[in-house]
Design a protein around this nucleic acid. Structure first.
Lengths: 196, 196
DNA sequence: AGAGTAACCGAACGATCGGTCGGGACAAGA
DNA sequence: TCTTGTCCCGACCGATCGTTCGGTTACTCT
């Protein structure tokens, strides 16, 4: 077998615990003592699995960034009319956010105090820039309204999508992932007002 | 004269420095040493003006909350058709966010680690609830689309508006406050797609 | 049975945390 | 000149920070 039994921590399982605590208390507000209590092992034992607090952060934001950049490599994001690709990316962003919720949550909250955080911010800006180009293309095609500058529109749409991490909670009997993705796409492209 | 000369700190002027640092580094990531360097006075001197770190946070989020709740007391937010009141509140939220940007930024980032932070979160939820009721009324009037649940729509609209604190920078020769408010209202109510 | 190793622990490291303390500089009012 | 009060300081407090270290289990392989 490739993998079997696991009643002890691996870097991955430890990460899932750490990310949960990071999101609860904030990265800076979380001490290694907090992590050890949440994981049920001693503070020093954590260092048997990972190099330190910052490596946990790096692993988490890497996972989130991989998910987001992966969208841009998909076929529907690369070929076709720009406004259709924009709609596809919008929907897929919602799906990635909900699927990797705790990791993306952490990514969207880094401030830039450490080298790892600044690296994460830089990659985020790169992703945002790629989507902004898509919006620019759709505007050039005349498929999105011209009375809102494309950079401004991009930021506002990102704001709506990214806000998911502040309130979406999966598995709760509330709204499902599909319902959220539909709602976001509808609001972004058609708006709130009832069509006459 | 009521007030004159001020070449020394007051709780208010110290607050403006502190909030700027809080927003740069995060509240938990900011030490009193960081504040003293930014203010140009010693760490102990800060305690001559304010009771401590948490009081600075409390003053800041209070100012932000007062601005937001003030909107709901204005006439256009209290009388008229619900969808018109919703549009008014949307526009005024953008104006308050840009006018009190650093204070609202701090408010939107509190995590709930201290009593002050939990109080701020509770008041925020109260404000959100008030706006959600407005959205519910507009839906009951048949003025907003029925295929997106009103609670979900409220969260997404809040997400778009609140994202302002992540990128809007006043006085920079970029976008003006009026342009942002117009863009938000247009996107929220009419959507991104060009009307045929 | 013995060797090797993965997983874990308590104790302690130097650094930094938010906050306290006693006192100095200075201007205003007497 | 003497008091009073504002504004500020360096030195220091106990607590906690992220991290290290030496050592102890307990399981696997030979």
């Amino acid at each position: 077998m490739t993998t079997a039994k696991r009643d002890t921590y691996t870097p991955e399982t430890l990460l899932s615990v750490a990310v949960r605590v990071f999101n609860d208390r904030g990265y800076d507000g979380t001490s290694m003592e907090h992590l050890s209590k949440a994981a049920g092992i001693s503070k020093s034992s954590i260092y048997h699995h990972v190099a330190g607090k910052e490596e946990l952060l790096r692993r988490a934001v890497s996972r989130a960034l991989d998910g987001l950049f992966g969208i841009l490599d998909e076929e529907h994001a690369r070929v076709g009319r720009a406004v259709r690709r924009l709609e596809y990316v919008t929907r897929r962003m919602v799906e990635v956010l909900t699927a990797e919720l705790p990791y993306v949550t952490l990514l969207l909250r880094v401030r830039g105090n450490t080298g790892t955080e600044r690296w994460a911010l830089e990659r985020r800006r790169e992703f945002d820039h790629r989507v902004a180009e898509l919006m620019k293309e759709a505007a050039a095609d005349g498929d999105v309204r011209a009375d809102v500058e494309f950079g401004l529109a991009t930021r506002l749409v990102f704001g709506m999508i990214n806000s998911l991490v502040e309130w979406y909670r999966p598995d709760g009997r509330g709204v499902g992932e599909r319902e959220v993705a539909d709602a976001v796409v509808r609001l972004v492209f058609e708006g709130l007002r009832k069509e006459e």
